[in-house]
């Protein structure tokens, strides 16, 4: 009897995992705040990048302030392949990264192991 129960629980657990990780879950876009001739946005690094998509205005110097709460060594590096940026994020400290906004487009970024992804949209 308990074997049957465990099998049922296992099936439910697998179903939940599939739905939770592979299902479509929307992520929010956040537009950077304008501050005179610059724009700033904060990204919290905790089990991913929140917000994961940041919208920047073209030709306005932009700064993204990363704050890594996550202790994982997975997320300690942030890499923007298009900009040649690869920096280590100190834990629980603000780390500012300047983004070149002279070209419009969508630029993906990721952690050092390319497991977590974020996006910068310049338009």
């Amino acid at each position: 009897m308990d074997k049957l129960l465990i099998a049922v629980i296992a099936v439910l657990a697998i179903g939940f995992i599939v739905w939770w990780f592979f299902g479509r879950h929307q992520s929010k876009e956040v537009t950077a705040e304008r501050d005179g001739n610059s724009q700033n946005v904060k990204v919290v690094v905790n089990g991913g990048y929140t917000p994961s998509t940041v919208v920047l205005k073209k030709n306005v110097p932009a700064k993204i302030t990363f704050n890594r709460k996550d202790p994982s060594s997975c997320l300690e590096q942030v890499v923007f392949p298009d900009f040649g940026i690869s920096e280590f994020l100190p834990q629980n400290q603000d780390h500012v990264i300047k983004i070149d906004t002279t070209k419009a487009g969508e630029f993906d970024y990721a952690c050092g192991m390319n497991m977590f992804h974020g996006k910068v949209i310049v338009k």
């Binding site: 939770w20 990780f21 299902g23 879950h25 905790n46 089990g47 991913g48 929140t50 994961s52 709460k69 996550d70 202790p71 994982s72 997975c74 997320l75 497991m115 977590f116």
Partner: peptide, 17 residues
Amino acid sequence: QFLQSAWASFLNHHANM
């Protein structure tokens, strides 16, 4: 800290090492 990080990713529909 493994647990902390795992939970944070879980909330983001992510799983990692």
